[in-house]
Design a protein around this nucleic acid. Structure first.
Lengths: 161, 161
DNA sequence: TTTAGCGTTTTAAATTTTTGAAACGATAAA
DNA sequence: TTTATCGTTTCAAAAATTTAAAACGCTAAA
């Protein structure tokens, strides 16, 4: 029992750091880790007390996590009118897809700017065009492989559900 | 000419935002964009005046970008003893690799925790083990596809160099 | 040597982000 | 209705980050 709690604490730490490293709120990672390693859905109050935070920020973070489809609300028909939260089964691919859309945005920007650059008649712009061409190619190839990954994961993930 | 400057300004903005979205310093993105779309290497002073920033932060950011192998120093043997900076030719794959190492870390963590969980004799830990197993599988598959991507890009990038 | 021209580091101010307390609003039970 | 129990929003405080100014140290030229 103690061992499991230590493990959970470590995960809460690490997920917090990882989320921060990716430009997200640390608390988002904490909540995700807590739910990932809980045996049943948790209420907002339980999240608060487990993490030692007050309701305000946890409520906001829970919303952001739901927006990103990383956690979801479940209803405990027996008990009270509390909301309970659990991990979205597709959390990993959804988290990945959130970043994927950022990547796709880069491809789009590169393409757009390349088009703009093409219509410009300035000679010096060559280098810029070349750079944008490479950038677009890079992100397009990336997208292709990311799609492959997601497709393969869709098959493989069945083993775990 | 004006058009090119507008383009450059837009890129500086967008790269700043993108870098921030990935948890990095906005100024890092600004510097990268500026160098990506300059026709020759720039000195620290030029970076400062182009971006309207003072030397202190730019100097620090330049160091971080060099650490990450996104830009590099070149020497202008003719002029002065100023340092000049330009984009590292492999900037895109290097930027990607920086994040890749974060991903690899996730795989490692998942594996490590799974091992810890395996040695635990508590029954309730099953769910945790299952989650960690899935997480590890997810990141391992991701790594595989990322490697594929990098290999293919290594070939394709030759067209642009 | 001394001096001038660099880049770096430090420090303090400004800004942004995170956080908690409390007010607020909604809904279900009494 | 009224009351109690939630979740959400607001706002001010705290913490973290970003930034600029200036001091500093190094190196090359005089």
């Amino acid at each position: 029992m103690t061992e499991e709690i230590i493990l959970k604490r470590e995960m809460i730490q690490r997920f917090g750091d990882a989320y921060k490293a990716f430009g997200l709120n640390k608390l988002m990672g904490n909540v995700v880790a807590l739910l990932l390693f809980s045996h049943q859905p948790l209420s907002l109050d339980e999240l608060c007390s487990e993490l030692g935070r007050s309701k305000g920020p946890v409520s906001q973070i829970v919303r952001r996590l739901r927006d990103r489809k990383l956690i979801r609300k479940v209803w405990d028909t027996e008990n009270s009118r509390k909301d309970y939260y659990e991990i979205e089964p597709e959390i990993f691919e959804n988290a990945f897809l959130n970043n994927f859309s950022l990547i796709k945005n880069n491809t789009k920007i590169a393409g757009m700017l390349k088009k703009k650059a093409d219509t410009s008649d300035h000679q010096h712009i060559e280098i810029v065009q070349k750079r944008l061409l490479e950038m677009e190619a890079f992100y397009m190839l990336m997208e292709k492989h990311f799609s492959n990954f997601l497709n393969e994961w869709e098959l493989k993930s069945r083993e775990y559900r």
